[in-house]
Design a protein around this nucleic acid. Structure first.
Lengths: 242, 242
DNA sequence: GCTCATTTCAAACAAACGTTTGAATAGGGC
DNA sequence: GCCCTATTCAAACGTTTGTTTGAAATGAGC
């Protein structure tokens, strides 16, 4: 059922004029269309009919190749998430090897998180950008199957980076560090998910929106400073009224 | 159509045994049930039948009182968001008045953002907590009517707080400050939306999860340090490989 | 050129969706 | 006690949903 297709199907009926050369196979075309539409409308609001029509394939092809809508969504995520997280861990390991006995800075560890995401945004043209936004949205999705899937996909990579931050910030207690890592992931995913979120903040800078490189270059120093912040004691916040 | 109901309806048929005293009117019961269910399943995945059944009212009551599902969702948000953002602005003004000619610290301005949220989480018992999570989720929802609604609801409050941060951090360029404010809102909403998100990070601390006060006491110093971070120059990140 | 597993396709499935309808019920104002 | 408006209710509306079915088409291996 999940083997390599024998040949490239030739259903050029619908969009032959608009897109004369259809190189990719049915499975990939469904994944590409699903990635874009899930990003645009969310999981629940995107129908299989919308996806298969955009992909120019038959409706039943989605269930034939992926089993169900949920499995299709997971396949969309896995396709890019798996390699990206592998890259992150490998990059972190290479940094640690290069540093030898010296400690890595927070900025360097953050770079190991960001650079594979940037590579994704650059390499696959529009597709990569779509995926990063989709990923940010998936983080906030309440559907149990999405949460469990992301949890399993991220657990190794998160554990690896927490260990790295723990070495870089030995004065931060484990518990506090877990929270700060949580804040880092939050700011990162929220930023990547933001398309027109900027309207909320106002001060729209069209030349920067969509330029993830510039945005992450602003985010890294912000997060590094937060990670290094002095740990609040028990009375912190009391004077502020908390 | 939107006037005060003449009397409290007495449809105690469904849940009289479980909840013998039904004090609230139909409209409020729908809002309460919708708040919890939208939080749990998201907007698209929550049906009006689910909401009205949980509220113990007739299906048609939702459309009768609110017009449509979208308007119901907006009503759920407005009910608590409007007073909360008003509180935030008033609190900020009172801080500024008390400080006189002295500048407010970032922590103090952040406190003006956090305290009304904490009040909401505390006052309305479970209801308030549900709402804060719902709000965090709504931030990441791609539905246009949600984005436009939030944008209009937040614009005044955001503008007010940007001005305050701008005074407190005169050395940060306007553009950079807009981004940092964006990161702040991201970390805040992501944190408030997090129920089992902590599983992603691991290091589950059950005694702290759900205790928003403790969480925000950890978040404020993190964000304040990030806001004060030195501004990156053009070559920043290059040495890190960006 | 026949075989056969793989893939495509049109059609249909039951279920669930948001919304509307028109009658039944309620209760304050006179 | 009757009028009138507000509300509740059961039922049905027409769509749309994810999924399944069985036949048609495809193309490499022999």
């Amino acid at each position: 059922m999940n083997t390599v297709p024998r040949s490239v199907p030739l259903n050029r009926l619908q969009k032959a004029a608009a897109d004369p050369v259809e190189t990719t196979d049915t499975k990939s075309r469904i994944l590409d269309a699903a990635e874009e539409l899930f990003m645009e409308h969310g999981f629940e609001a995107t129908s299989l009919r919308l996806i298969t029509t955009a992909a120019g394939v038959n409706l039943a092809a989605a269930n034939y190749h992926f089993g169900s809508k949920e499995e299709l969504f997971q396949a969309v995520l896995t396709r890019r998430l798996d390699p990206m997280n592998r890259d992150r861990v490998e990059l972190l390991s290479s940094y640690e090897a290069a540093a030898g006995k010296q400690l890595l800075t927070c900025e360097k560890i953050l770079a190991a998180m960001f650079i594979p995401a940037l590579k994704l945004a650059r390499d696959h043209e529009t597709g990569g950008k779509n995926f990063l936004r989709l990923l940010g949205r998936a983080y906030a999705d309440p559907a149990p199957f999405i949460r469990e899937f992301l949890s399993s996909q991220y657990s190794e990579m998160i554990a690896r980076f927490r260990a790295a931050f723990s070495k870089a910030l030995p004065h931060i207690p484990r518990e506090e560090l877990s929270w700060r890592l949580h804040f880092v992931m939050g700011a990162l995913s929220f930023t990547l998910a933001g398309t027109d979120v900027l309207k909320v903040i106002g001060q729209y800078h069209p030349e920067e929106v969509g330029n993830d490189e510039l945005i992450l270059k602003r985010l890294a120093p912000f997060l590094a400073a937060g990670l290094r912040a002095p740990v609040a004691n028990a009375d912190s916040g009391r004077e502020l009224g908390f």
